[in-house]
Design a protein around this nucleic acid. Structure first.
Lengths: 125, 125
DNA sequence: CCGTATCCTATATGATACTG
DNA sequence: CAGTATCATATAGGATACGG
């Protein structure tokens, strides 16, 4: 048997999934990621920041078609609280604030990659 | 340039993400997967069916702690409509219905694997 | 046993107006 | 420019009861 402390390959993952996975104390390691991908905007914000690099509030708003001030603001705050996004405030007139992905946020990209591959195989309809 | 018709490696994915990805006509290939992972139950149903194989309605309900008849039923119907789950009905008394993952559903596992790796690296708190 | 029908509530999201 | 405050609404999810 193994614990999830060990690195395992995808093949090992598939094998052991059937016999139940011994998780670290405290629960399933997938759950927090699932929480992140809930909701309409956070995943798009993460993807956009990865694609475009550092961005200002207004640029993000323009890139995310249809998002409101309220949702962008609250989403960014939660992402910052979770350590996925950094917020750099410059005290200038007019004000400037820049957002960027942290390494922790960028490390979500393999998940997007896996999702893309599934989407490519099975279509986007 | 490339279109997403081609298979690309993760490294290529990361490179090209910055210059924008040319998607197949009709939109982003990640979007349908994102939709699947929205909500509280569908992902747990998929994972449970992969872990346990073919399962009856009642067994699924017991495995998914707290799910109601309503949610399990409607979720299964949507998963079936999307081709991720098969439904086998046996006309016996008492009635028996068995659910199982399709190949399309099982092919979502690399996404869970990627999520697990992120969770292992960054903790499940 | 395997659901459906009905009703209810909480939360996520949207719209609009306003400020340092 | 970069937000906050306030109010409105849609949808997801839950509770309960009943039926083939």
């Amino acid at each position: 048997m193994f614990t999830l402390r060990d690195r395992i390959t995808y093949e090992e993952f598939l094998q052991h999934i059937h016999e139940g996975i011994v998780t670290e104390a405290g629960g399933c390691p997938v759950t927090p990621v699932l929480t992140l991908f809930q909701g309409k905007w956070k995943n798009q914000i993460i993807y956009t920041l990865c694609r475009c690099g550092t961005m200002r509030f207004g640029a993000l708003k323009r890139a995310l078609d249809g998002i409101t001030n309220t949702m962008l603001s609250s989403s960014l705050r939660e992402l910052e609280a979770d350590g996925l996004v950094t917020r750099m405030q410059f005290n200038e007139i007019p004000p400037r604030v820049e957002y960027a992905l942290t390494e922790k946020g960028g490390d979500l990209m393999p998940i997007f990659y896996a999702m893309m591959n599934w989407g490519l195989k099975y279509g986007n309809k």
